[in-house]
């Protein structure tokens, strides 16, 4: 009897906690969504009418069709895609070298690359600004593409090294014996087997670049505007009054990440936890 009571109490506590955490998790973002669906005048009075059923899609329409938002947005997607392609290509080439070849200072170079990842952005953002100002490349696509690619590269090298190392060398050697060239053996044998790692790296690099704010704000921001910077411009422009528009814009920014996440759930998690979790 007491045992059963105890079990019920534990069950109630567990449900209570899990449900409150779910509410806590969703509250700010769902109120932002609600705000995005409100007409502007809902926030003219105090208290604002959050609870009226007066809903509209005008804010989304305005943001997507009548403002610069869509340009910021497409620019960001372009930058993130380019950065992730560069990061994955160069990173996995490097990782392949680590996993398949023996060479001098291999261990030292590997540890150095891991250590590079620990350099905080705050420590290098001023010198990066100075470097790119000197060669007159501030406010270009290339600055953001390169720096974001480099930012995600160390982790990709480590992640891919793990994947390549888990593929037995003998498989490639068998392909040579069957008459494949070096390149062909890589494309036909190693590449498909490493594909989950590549997918995880690609997603990690994309999300890394897509979420970047500091680099985009300091090294670009007048000609090339990413959506994160655009969002702050948006809110300043309207002195915080038009929170309906900012909310609508912010909400559209969530969409690609949610889509990536729901389709590539597993690789997303492997990438975002740096391969610490391989399911």
């Amino acid at each position: 009897m007491t045992n059963r009571k105890k079990r019920i109490i534990i069950k109630l506590l567990a449900y209570g906690f899990i449900i409150s955490w779910a509410v806590f998790s969703l509250f700010p973002l769902s109120t932002m969504f609600l705000t995005a669906l409100k007409p502007k005048n809902a926030f003219d009075q105090f208290p604002p009418s959050y609870f009226s059923t007066n809903l509209t899609l005008d804010n989304f329409k305005y943001v997507l069709f009548n403002s610069d938002w869509i340009k910021y947005y497409l620019d960001t997607i372009f930058i993130s895609t380019a950065a992730s392609i560069i990061a994955v290509l160069t990173g996995s080439l490097g990782a392949y070298a680590f996993s398949r070849y023996q060479f001098k200072y291999k261990r030292t170079i590997m540890v150095a690359i891991l250590a590079l990842q620990m350099i905080p952005v705050a420590s290098i953002v001023i010198p990066l600004y100075n470097m790119f100002a000197t060669i007159n490349m501030l406010d270009t696509y290339w600055v953001l593409i390169l720096i974001n690619a480099v930012g995600s590269m160390p982790l990709i090298i480590w992640l891919m090294n793990g994947y390549f190392s888990s593929i037995p060398k003998e498989l490639e050697e068998a392909a040579y014996i069957d008459g494949c060239s070096n390149m062909k053996a890589f494309w036909k044998v190693t590449f498909p087997l490493a594909a989950p790692g590549l997918a995880a790296s690609m997603i990690y690099a994309f999300v890394y670049a897509f979420g970047d704010y500091i680099i985009a704000k300091t090294l670009a921001g007048s000609r090339i505007i990413t959506y994160t910077v655009g969002l702050t411009l948006f809110s300043n422009q309207y002195e915080g009054m038009d929170i309906t528009l900012v909310s609508a814009a912010a909400f559209t920014a969530l969409v690609p990440i949610i889509v990536l996440f729901s389709i590539f759930h597993k690789y997303f998690i492997i990438g975002m936890t740096g391969g610490a979790l391989k399911e």
Binding site: L29, F251, I257
Partner: peptide, 8 residues
């Protein structure tokens, strides 16, 4: 991403 979270 952080900026969207910040605004929310």
């Amino acid at each position: 991403c952080s900026v969207v979270a910040a605004y929310s």
